[in-house]
Each structure stands twice: as C-alpha cells, then as structure tokens.
Design a protein around this nucleic acid. Sequence first.
RNA 1: CGGGGCGUAGCGCAGUCUGGUAGCGCAUCUGCUUUGGGAGCAGAGGGCCGGAGGUUCGAAUCCUCUCGCCCCGACCA
Length: 564
Amino acid sequence: MRYSRMLLPTLKESPSDADVISQKLMIRAGMIRKVAAGVYNLLPMGLRAVRKVEAIVREEMNRAGAQEVSMPMVIPAELWQESGRWDEYGKELLRIKDRHDREFCLGPTHEEVITDLVRREVRSYKDLPLNLYQIQSKFRDEIRPRFGLMRGREFVMKDAYSFHATAESLDAEYENMYNAYTRIFERCGLDFRAVEAETGSIGGRFSHEFTVLAESGEDAVATCTGCSYAANVERAEIREPALSAPSAGSAIERVSTPGKKTIEEVSAFLKAGTDKLIKTLIYETDKGLIAALVRGDSQINEFKLRNASGSSFVKLAEEDAVRKTTGAPVGFAGPVKLNIPIYADFNVRGMFDAITGANENDAHLLHVNASRDFRATYADIRNAAQGDKCPRCAGVFEIKRGIEVGHVFKLGTKYSEAMGANFLDEAGKEQVVIMGCYGIGIGRTAAASIEQNHDEAGIIWPKPLAPFDCEVLPVNVKDDETRKTSEALYEVLKKEMEVLLDDRDERAGVKFKDADLIGIPVRVTIGERNLKQGLVEIKERKTGEVKLVKVEEAALEVKKLLQS
RNA sequence: CGGGGCGUAGCGCAGUCUGGUAGCGCAUCUGCUUUGGGAGCAGAGGGCCGGAGGUUCGAAUCCUCUCGCCCCGACCA
C-alpha cells in the first residue's frame, strides 16, 4: 500500500474528548473517527488491525471445531418475548419498529436467535454437540459509552454458542473454548489472565473472564501472589482471617453526629479511620429485611450477600423501610439492638471499639464490640481487596485493573427451556438442550493491545495484530536513487508480506513521527547518506534497535526480524 | 437518571463577564528556499459562532427553549 494513496489522516493533537490512551492513539493514528456517542467509523488502518484480531479468532474457533454462521442484527420482538428478556433487559436493548409497526430490537447478543435456529434444525442427540459462532456487530444502548472502541454502543463481537446433550459434553466444550481463548489471546501478544467471574442471575455455575491487564481497565481483578488463583473482585473468595483476641473494651457510648451520614463524614468527624467503622446496610430480600455489615473500608458484594443469606434476590431497602426498621433516617443504622437478621462479613467479627450508627437520628455509638454487643451470622460478603488471603494457598491478593476481552460461560438450559429447544436422546426421550456461550470483543481486543503496547511516540503493534508488517520509508522521494531503491524493495517485500510505502513528498521528520505513531513493527529507512555505501537502515519499533544492512540483504533481514 | 462542563474553520483553542458584525496555532492550497526526527518566508481558501425563538439600532456575546457531545456519580447508610 502506498501511503500517498491511503486514507490515513494522522493528527498531531488528540481530540479533547478522548480520555484513554488507546482511544487517543487510535484517533491520532487515523484508525477511527467518531460518528455519534459510542459509534465509530473504522478507517483503513483501523479496519486492518481489527481484521487481524478477527482472523486469529476465526482460525482458532475453526480449529476448535466451531462453525461460523451469520445472524441478523435486527431481531423480531417475539423471540425476546419468548425468552422473557424483552421485559427484563431494560433500556440497553434498542427497540425499533418497522413500517408495519412490528417491533424489533437491535441484537445486543444472540442467544434467542441461535436457540431459535437450533430448535428448528436439531432433532436428535446425533446432531449434538454443536458449536456455532459469528463475528458480527452488536448494539447495546449503554448508559454511558466511553473509551472509544473499548466501550462503544455498536461494537464487533465474536459470539459462540454450544449445544449439548449432557452436562459432561458441555464441560468438555467449556474447557475446549477455554483453551481456544488462551491460544487466541496468546497469539494476539497480550498480557492477560483468565479469571473466575460472576455469572450474574444465571445461577450457581462459574464462568471465566479473559482480562487484559491495564491501568485503564474498568474491571478489578484479584490475583494471588502465591498461586495461579485469579478472580474478579466480586467473585474472589476470601479466606476467613484469624481472629485476634477480643479485648474487654469500654462500655458503649452514644455521641451526637449531626448530619454525618456517610462513612467518610463520620470518619472525618470522629477522627477515626474508616476501618474503625462498621457499615450497616439494610437490604430487602424475598425473606424480608436483613442487615448487612462490613467494615467501613470494605465494599459489600450483593452476589455474596445473596448466597450467604439464602435469598433469591437482595436489593437495598427504600428510605421508608430503613426508617421503620432502624427508627432513624438512612445514614444512622447500626447492628446494636437491631431486630432483623444480621449478616456480617468475617472482617467485622473481631472488631471492638468500633463505631456504628445508633439507630437514632444524628447519633452514632462508640466502643461497639462485635462479640459482645450484637449477634450476627458471619460470612464472606464483601469484595476482595488488596492484602486479603487467598482461599487456595498462603498467599495474599493483589488487586489489578483489567479490560475484559473475553468471557466463557455455561448457560445451562435457561434459553433452551424457555424456548423449547429439545432433542430426542438414545432412548427416544425428549430432553432439553444444554447450552454454553463464549464471547470475545474484537475491537476491544485491538484497543486493549494498544493500552498495553505504546510509548510516548505512539502505538507499538505486536506483530500479529499490526496493520502492516513493514514500512518502507524513503527519506526524500525527490532523490532518484532513493526512490528507485525504495520502490524496488517495496515490490520485493510486497510478495511476502503487507508493506506500507511512505511515498509522500514530506520532510523526513514528518514521516518519522507518523511512522512511530502508527507503530508498524519494522521500518526500513532509505536515505541518500547510507545509500552511497549501499546501505539501508532497519529499525524495530518495539526495541528501537537500528541496524544498517546492505540493500540486497534488506528483504531477508526484514523477514528475519518478523519471524523472531 | 442526578450533578457539572462544553458546542466558534478539518483539529486544538481565544473571544462571551463588559453587545459594535470573528481571531490564533496546527492542517489545507500556491510559489520560492529547505530536506535524516512534526522547516522558513510570502500569499490564498475555508465559519448560517450547534439549532429555534426573543431582547436590541445592532447578538458568538444578554434571555428562553431545544439538540448534540464530554466528565463525575448512580454501592447511599
């Protein structure tokens, strides 16, 4: 490809509304342009990178035995009504009507469509297992799209769905996909972790998120310093800490704390660390109101609370309910003399001389002693934090930020049951198909790669994702020798790889800056000075390493570098 | 959805408080010089100042309404 002919509008300054590095660099490197909030044009350079990710995903999915299909983006409402999600999904589902006033939605995911397909076409256990995937645009009307391709409303996703006669078969496919994902992200050259994650409302089964480690990530991941355990902070199990000997302590004392409702306010007002406070939250559940206690510096985890309390749902109680139960407005609840079931995190058990709400307006209690002043059921009900103990070994957690690029999931029979996707087993008996689903954010993977691979000057593409393998850069195209040599090298390289020839009549500095910005792995610079000795310069973008080689050897050197 | 901010040339911004008919840098185009890390000089083109309504002799500027975009929060006790 000739640079002079390519739509590659690079920018010196990044647009003011970009706020993560990948987004800034993608805009500056002429890869993407915004069309609307969370909706982007992919320019040639951007599309090339995305295609590289797609190609790797496609190859590995095919290798793993999945078959590619393509499903529509516009989906009739009936399918979503059948699964029940038409009402459940909320505003993220963009609903539209056709000219006949029939309702449709733009697909944010495709369980309904694929289940519909499979229930029509699969009759027998002999047709199973089956794994179908597509690489296609999705639309989710996010509350707040941001970070460019990392969290757009329209985005390209690879979504795969597997269908099984038995749970064992699903287990095997889950592992197969897990391995395929590992290969995919390894091939993309990413530093990632497969972490245990929450499954949401689907039920007790675990799932794995594939998370690329990056500061700008929206997910928090707990990784163990001692073993390979890694989990989303919401999911991570925390080993119960050893109890320190409780002190006898002083008697409870009531203090006035006018208007101090939040942990921070109380902590500042009473000049005590947030870890000296007990946070009391009132939850509404199917079993009635309960109180949940965590240390002031911890975050409650509603999934864990739901499990610990054996409820089918938990929801923060309304202001009115809080007032009735505690006798005080929101902000002054405490466990002492509270007569609803109390669930407390393990880290509350050993607390003494603690501060809690007094169940009375504008008042808190000092010197509260957990073992003495209230009864609670102790459980793990908070998010993991730095320094928590690993459930598997003697190590502790480190909290890192990451970008979720893939997710593998056991769906079970949620959709097949709701939509009647059945098959006949060997005994001729009708059974419900068991399902798994497996997603990868394609654009997000490309963006994550930039988050992980860049420097001051621009993008540093890992070779497998680079839009071009090599850039040939004639320093001055007006010099005949330079031009001839560059063109010749371009023709040779082109036969074996994707090459960008910067044939623009621009100053050297401009070309160098652009080359660094777009981040092609290998650059061959051809200039009069070296050419007089029959030499050209080969530079690796990643290491900055430069070597001078003979013109005749340049092509071979480039190939060697790309293979290393 | 709540709070905050911003819409002025392709991009980044000033001008708005204190109304007087639009400016800077980059980019673009032309010419000359220059040519290994975002060149210099000279010239040129490009704006319904997001949109609608109002106030005024006069509105980018003041008022009302609207649309779009961005940020923070939405786990508060």
